[in-house]
Design a protein around this nucleic acid. Structure first.
Lengths: 295, 295
DNA sequence: AAACATCTGTGCATTTTTGAACAACCTACC
DNA sequence: GGTAGGTTGTTCAAAAATGCACAGATGTTT
């Protein structure tokens, strides 16, 4: 037996609270005729009288007093809800969901923990998965994407940084096979590459163009697996300069080149982009990116 | 920070619950364009987004989920309220406020207690006061009035019984002064009468016409005081046959006459008259009145 | 006693809300 | 790949809710 017209309950509530139709109309900001019509409609719907009418005003019946107490708490609940929602856009609290490909975890986690410490009310959820989380489904507040600029509608895209990548090999590999003198020497070496033939990453394309397919002896679809392949000595492969700098066991085969750079993008949904929480995080993120000069 | 449009919260609640605008529109029985407009209006009012829009539907944001839980309990509260109000007109429970002049207390109380015992859910409030309680102010459900038929608007009036009254004196008075032989002998006796000169009760008028004013030596405005005056031996006075029958110390001076009869009326407010609670009480009251043959 | 202020109630013009139809988009399924 | 079903979003006409003005009634104050 659900009630269909909550607004009528609200007007009835004010009438029960103030005792007069005119007073309720003033509070509600409507004409007193509207109040009368709301009461009539609601009483007809409920099949019972909520008020006794007389020339001095409306006095609530037993049912009217019942409605008064119920609507009183409703009014308070809605008021608190409104305060929470209005305030949440102006405070940095609650969940902040960030998504990125797993390969960026060690790059991003220091920044994420720093943001969490700066805003104790924040609970950071860092989602890394193979699939791309969709911002328009509300799966995350901020996504950090690599590669071509995303062009999804309703998403605001900002450049974050350029991720420099170079060719690296593990010390074990170098000890066993030596370093290639140059591109002409690649045929005698082993490489680690993407399993996906049409990978659009620029360094992957460069590998396809400059290294014989037979020399790519370790292939994986997951970026993290490629990185592990290099560190384990499976072959020479592309590693971001940032990751390489933190892994002393890697030896630089070819230094990063501009054409290998992969741009990083900050992507947010337009609905959430303007909120203080997201804006605050974006500021923190860009500040941290300035320290990524080495990547 | 009160919320002005409860209906918009209701539609937002359904959208959050079902996940789609179309589904909410079906449940609410309105067009989906209306739902969209409600959501837009509410979000604009709150200054925050409640939903993320995409082609598969609306997924609630953090604020939207907050609204969902609040509105969920509101829906339940209103539903229960509706059930209570709709049901209360069909059950005999709650308060039943009956008002009458205090002189009728001993006549009515047995009937009232009997009604309460027949309906354990009832709390009977019997208000007796000098002033007349006003039904149109919601002061009582049922009023029992004596005298001329009430003619207030919005009140439904039904005849209940005729209250027969006679002239009585206490045994002590009779022992001291004897009984008057007839109206011609009244001048030598003492009488108890109304203080109010323009009292409209027929027996009071009869007293004014047939008894010298000097013989009315005990006057009171309160009916109960008049009755006590008679029983205390202050003089000869009018007592209802019902009361006289229950007081053996009274001696009949003149038996009840039809022209002394005072009609009793049942008065109820038109809004409450049709409710089962009042109707049930009226049936009980009329049944009890059949046993008042002696009054 | 009489004027005043306040409240309810009702018919009519106006504004606001709603509904219908259509377009655009995405998803799923064949 | 293409088609069918479902969803959102927008424009214009219809419907409904609202505001206005005035009448009626009651209690209060001068």
């Amino acid at each position: 037996m659900p009630i269909e017209t909550w607004d009528e309950i609200r007007t009835a509530f004010q009438v029960a609270r103030l005792g007069t139709v005119s007073g309720a109309a003033d509070v509600l900001g409507v004409h007193h005729a509207t109040v009368i019509r709301h009461i009539d409609s609601l009483e007809k719907r409920l099949g019972a009288r909520l008020f006794q009418r007389h020339a001095r005003g409306y006095t609530p019946t037993e049912a009217g007093r019942d409605l008064l107490t119920v609507a009183q708490t409703t009014e308070e609940q809605f008021s608190q809800l409104s305060s929470r929602i209005k305030g949440q856009g102006e405070t940095v609290a609650g969940e902040l969901v960030v998504t990125a490909v797993s390969g960026m975890a060690d790059l991003l986690t220091p920044m994420l923990t720093g943001f969490q410490e700066a805003h104790p009310g924040i609970i950071v959820r860092f989602l890394t998965d193979l699939r791309v989380f969709r911002l328009d489904y509300g799966e995350a507040h901020v996504a950090i994407r690599a590669g071509a600029a995303p062009e999804e509608p309703d998403n605001v895209v900002q450049p974050l940084a350029r991720m420099r990548t170079g060719l690296y090999a593990s010390r074990g590999y170098v000890a066993a096979h030596g370093l290639p003198a140059g591109p002409g020497d690649f045929a005698g070496h082993r490489f680690v590459g993407a399993d996906n033939e049409q990978s659009r990453a620029p360094f992957h394309r460069w590998l396809r163009d400059n290294v014989p397919a037979d020399s790519v002896t370790f292939r994986a679809s997951e970026p993290q697996a490629l990185f592990h392949g290099v560190t384990a000595g499976a072959g020479i492969g592309f590693v971001s300069a940032y990751q390489a700098a933190h892994h002393p066991e890697l030896v630089e085969v070819m230094p990063p080149r501009p054409e290998w750079d992969a741009p990083l993008w900050i992507v947010t949904h337009v609905d959430l982009h303007r909120t203080l929480k997201v804006q605050s995080f974006l500021g923190h993120l860009k500040e941290a990116a300035k320290g990524w000069a080495g990547i």
